[in-house]
């Protein structure tokens, strides 16, 4: 079974997304609400996939991606974001997430990502 952690500052978004992942038979090991929690959850569970929001208060997705890459350069990270502004765009490209999916997304895009791990 594919394992994952999901990180988003919107609590409802995390709840609904996790429910959706379960339909796709993805085991959610942890739920986080900022970048710092993302790093901690990753180091704790070493999941197959990290679903990561970008814009979050205090510690954002960039912080999380940077530190997860430090912990494991081959970590499979999927950035799910509403907007990628020009300021963060270059940094994201540098940190090379495996996928960038824009909100609101189609279920098929998540299915494609999960199938890539399977």
């Amino acid at each position: 079974m594919v394992t994952a952690i999901t990180i988003d500052d919107d609590e409802y978004a995390v709840e609904l997304f996790c429910e959706y992942l379960e339909i796709l038979q993805v085991k959610v090991l942890g739920k986080g609400y900022n970048g710092k929690e993302a790093v901690e959850l990753y180091e704790k569970f070493k999941p197959d996939i990290v679903f990561l929001d970008l814009l979050m208060p205090d510690y954002d997705g960039i912080y999380a991606l940077e530190n997860i890459r430090k912990a494991n350069p081959d970590a499979f990270v999927v950035v799910i974001t509403a907007v990628v502004d020009q300021g963060r765009r270059d940094k994201i490209i540098e940190l090379k997430p495996n996928h960038v999916i824009q909100k609101p997304f189609d279920p098929e895009q998540i299915v494609a990502v999960v199938n890539e791990i399977k």
Binding site: A13, L55, K103, P104
Partner: peptide, 12 residues
């Protein structure tokens, strides 16, 4: 950003 996040929730 502020509109797409709730839209994303609705979509899911």
């Amino acid at each position: 950003h502020d509109l797409k996040n709730p839209l994303s929730v609705l979509k899911i």
